[in-house]
């Protein structure tokens, strides 16, 4: 211990081991903890508020855990909460959203995957031009297409119906999904495609027997992207459906922001969680695939 003199170094080799409680680590993990808390807090507040009774909310603060846990706000949000005159809760909106999301997701994925496959493997003259237009379509502010779509749906007799909204979602999902599938199919080895051609397989044969079985991960990514996107949509729902066919996001907004009656914050927060539950579940279950979907949505050309 006293030997600080010029003894040649014979001690341990290699980099200095990091102490667990170095200043750097305290700073780093401290910052990360604060940040994580900040992001997690709203979810916590939502859950806590939705489990309290109204008297407790008026007395306490939003961060304190519930003294008496009650599920009554959840029940009320689901089946009794009012939007103006009707008091059916969120359940109608939930089932509408289900009936919108499922066909929209299936339809848009079928169309976009076949499109992407045609673009990747069966290029025809002019295909690139249409594709470029389609990609620009992803950037057009939806507002400019709102009214032309209203006219189109009205002509088809679909304005205000669930079917109309399904069509709208299919159309607006096409740019990103087509890009996603085209890029994926392009990345598959071309020999596979050529071998199948030599064996006499045609357009649909190759699609169903080779492309689809080989592309299950990208189909999953597309599904995650579409389910969350369509479930979370508000603008198209409010424009193209009516009170009976409103998706869940629209009913939620109408319930919480309705001006009549006393504000029941616990019911509002329960309704908010219920609406966020589907995308949140998908997010927490799918993990990395969700991130991949985002990266794909980020238009990596």
């Amino acid at each position: 211990m006293v030997e600080t003199s010029s003894v040649p170094l014979t001690g341990p080799q290699g980099p200095k081991p990091r102490k667990a409680l170095s200043r750097r680590n305290v700073f780093l993990y401290g910052t990360l903890l604060l940040i994580t808390l900040y992001y997690a807090l709203p979810l916590y507040v939502m859950i806590v508020t939705s489990l309290k009774g109204m008297p407790e909310i008026r007395l306490g603060n939003v961060f304190s855990p519930p003294v008496e846990i009650t599920f009554q706000p959840w029940a009320k949000a689901w089946s009794e909460a009012c939007t103006g005159l009707t008091c059916n809760g969120l359940s109608t909106g939930f089932w509408n959203s289900v009936r919108i999301t499922i066909p929209s997701v299936i339809l848009s994925i079928i169309i976009a995957s076949v499109n992407g496959y045609a673009l990747a493997n069966w290029k025809f003259k002019g295909a690139d031009a249409f594709f470029t237009i389609l990609i620009f379509g992803a950037f057009i502010p939806y507002q400019i297409l709102l009214y032309p779509m209203v006219i189109m749906l009205r002509e088809m007799g679909l304005y205000g119906s669930l079917g109309g909204l399904v069509l709208v979602h299919t159309i607006f999902g096409m740019p990103i999904l087509t890009l996603l599938f085209r890029n994926y199919f392009t990345s598959l080895p071309e020999e596979l495609f050529k071998a199948a051609r030599v064996d006499g397989a045609g357009f649909w044969g190759i699609y169903f027997r080779i492309m689809v079985p080989m592309s299950l991960p990208i189909f999953t990514v597309a599904m995650i992207l579409q389910v969350t996107g369509i479930w979370n949509d508000f603008l198209f729902g409010v424009v193209y459906t009516g009170p009976d066919t409103y998706p869940m996001t629209v009913s939620l907004n109408n319930i919480v922001n309705s001006t009549q009656g006393v504000k029941e914050y616990n019911v509002n927060m329960a309704a908010t969680i219920l609406t966020g539950l589907v995308p949140l579940t998908i997010y927490f279950v799918s993990g990395r695939l969700f991130v991949r979907g985002i990266a794909a949505g980020a238009v990596k050309g």
Partner: peptide, 16 residues
């Protein structure tokens, strides 16, 4: 935890 808000809709975000 940092990414989960992105899974939520703007309506849910706004109301929270």
């Amino acid at each position: 935890i940092i990414l989960y808000p992105y899974a939520l809709s703007f309506v849910v975000t706004g109301l929270v």
